[in-house]
């Protein structure tokens, strides 16, 4: 018994170390969205420079859609872009873009001109109105919205072949059956 008591500090240390080990691997930005299964707050965003149409919550009605927050300042969006182009070329799902927090109104349109525009519609969100309405922390973040305008899934970070095939695409197909 006495002998075991000497192991107590070691045991306490191991428990704490265990928590730290797990804590270090968690992504502090990867927070669960409280908006899952909530209706999208109504919004109407202006078009970005050089575009005729903006993007509003009305555009989401009646179909499963993918809403993507991006910005020309966002490095990870650059990595995500080819995958979004692929989704758009194959017409897998209506893809809506929200150009978030562009300091220069030309920056977003130029970015798209150089790399290609995968979006069905784009809304300009220079003051994070839509971003806060969607509870966005950073870019890129994407939301799957169902036919009734309800947010069904939030994807934090880059969409790539892997998470598209394993999570996003199956969910979109399943939601379409509803």
């Amino acid at each position: 018994m006495k002998r075991l008591m000497y192991l107590a500090p070691l045991a306490v240390f191991l428990v704490i170390a265990g928590y730290f080990a797990v804590g270090l691997k968690l992504n502090p930005r990867d927070l669960p969205s409280v908006l899952i299964d909530q209706k999208v707050e109504s919004f109407a965003l202006k078009p970005i420079k050089g575009y005729d149409r903006g993007f509003s919550s009305e555009d989401l009605k009646g179909q499963v859609s993918l809403v993507n927050f991006w910005g020309s300042w966002c490095v990870a969006c650059l990595a995500e872009h080819p995958m979004l182009m692929k989704i758009a070329e194959q017409k897998l799902v209506p893809l809506y873009g929200i150009d978030w927090r562009e300091k220069d109104p030309d920056a977003g349109p130029q970015w798209l001109k150089r790399r290609g525009d995968p979006y069905t519609l784009i809304g300009d969100d220079p003051e994070s109105k839509a971003a806060i309405a969607f509870g966005v922390y950073g870019a890129p973040e994407s939301f799957i919205v169902d036919q009734r305008g309800t947010i069904r899934y939030k994807h934090t970070g880059v969409i790539d072949e892997g998470n598209w095939a394993s999570t996003l695409w199956p969910l979109i197909q399943e939601l379409r059956k509803q």
């Binding site: 927070l31 908006l35 806060i132 969607f134 509870g135």
Partner: peptide
């Protein structure tokens, strides 16, 4: 704000 970002 809580309805958008949670208690966080």
């Amino acid at each position: 704000m809580v309805s958008r970002y949670g208690d966080y």
